[in-house]
Simulated scan of single mutants.
Amino acid sequence: MDWLTKFPQIDPAVLLTVKRAIDGSLRGLTRSYGKAIENFFYPLQQVLIFFEKMISATPWPIVILVLAAVAWAAARSWKVVAGVVGTMVAIGLLGLWGDAMLTVSLVLTSTIFAILIGLPLGILMNRYQTAGRVMSTVLDVMQTMPPFVYLIPVVMLLGIGRVPGFIAVVIYALPPIIRLTDLGIRLVDKEVLEAADAYGCSRNQKLWKVQLPLAMPTIMAGINQTIMMALGMVVIASMIGVQGLGLNVLQAIANQYFTQGIFNGFAIVGIAIVFDRISQAYGRRLQKHRSVGHE
């Protein structure tokens, strides 16, 4: 009756052989093409360094003024502007301004890259059913995969540093923008599309002049979720050398520094609130304009 209590499995020796073959091939790839892989990602490293230096070197009053201006342009609300300014001032008063700027630069660059990759993939997912089904399955796997797993392949190929951390953050943050781009395009009213057809719009004209503008509120919700997921990955990415608030939290966990963990956690939450309020307010304004346009 052992077969009822012990689930049958593949021969452990066979599994071990397969695991060793896969791991060995990845290590062999790294040894053989490690320099070529580093050279390939060198421009990306320079882009990350540029953004990091630009944001970190900018005087704090200018950073706060720019964020306040962006908040006003997005929300047209003094409450949102006051919340953004108050949050950034509080982060500075806690002595976390420099680390916060490193985190902001990582989140901004990873969000920009996620949008540049995710928007075309979302359009592709919407236009081609077969590709859409395949991508939907891949996205399901990506969204249920533990975040730590993303670190393994990039570390094996690229080692420790800002580039592998950045790649892991982008991969983790991609699914929302892809899914909500596809959803936003699908939610465009059929009557509007029929009117575009009646005016003789081509497929590309219909996409760029009708579907994407009307889908922008939903796409903005996807961008909002992408930003939140990028921030959520910051602490995990610090395990492979990413500087900023996440590294401070990791050190606080390792050394049991309660107040350091709380303060840095507050700073991460504060940055998340700033980005969330700005992107949500802009999305609501777009939704309002769309509703007025329909009326």
Rank of each mutant, 00 (worst) to 15 (best):
L212H: 00
T218H: 09
P217H: 06
M216L: 15
S238E: 07
V242Q: 02
M220Q: 05
M228I: 13
Q211D: 05
M239T: 15
P213V: 08
I223R: 06
K209N: 12
P217W: 11
Q225R: 12
V242P: 02
M228E: 05
I219E: 09
G232F: 04
K209S: 14
M220Y: 14
A230E: 11
L207N: 00
A230T: 03
W208C: 00
V235Q: 11
M239I: 15
V235A: 15
V242W: 03
W208Q: 00
A215P: 06
M220H: 09
Q211W: 13
L231R: 10
M229H: 02
V210Y: 14
K206H: 09
T226A: 14
Q211M: 14
G241W: 06
A221D: 13
K206W: 15
M239N: 14
T226D: 06
K206A: 14
L207W: 15
V234G: 13
V234L: 07
P217L: 15
L231K: 04
A230W: 02
M220A: 13
L212R: 00
A230Q: 07
S238K: 07
L231I: 02
M216E: 10
Q225I: 02
N224M: 05
T218Q: 10
Q243N: 14
V210S: 02
P213R: 08
T218M: 08
I219A: 06
